[in-house]
Amino acid sequence: MAEYRLDCFGEACPVPLLKAQKKLADLKVGDLLIVEVDHSCAIKNVPEWARKEGHNVEIEEIGDGEWEIYIQKTK
């Protein structure tokens, strides 16, 4: 159950989504990926994709215009 952080601060769409997809593919089932973003459309398209894939997703607002997206790989 490892935890990985993906720094996507300063990255505009669709870069956070593409990076998250690439990173999650390398993770094992049960691992947690935390995507750090500051682009509001990323908190829409990243969770949308991850939920569609069946992973557990949670969004945390950590500051003004900054979020962490928690994705737990389920399969």
């Binding site: 300063g10 500051g63 003004d64």
Partner: peptide, 18 residues
């Protein structure tokens, strides 16, 4: 709109590629 939602942020330039 972003100010009202407290989501205003001046983003830093991360790399020269950007």
């Amino acid at each position: 709109a972003s100010l009202a939602a407290s989501q205003f942020k001046i983003r830093k330039i991360k790399t020269y590629r950007q």
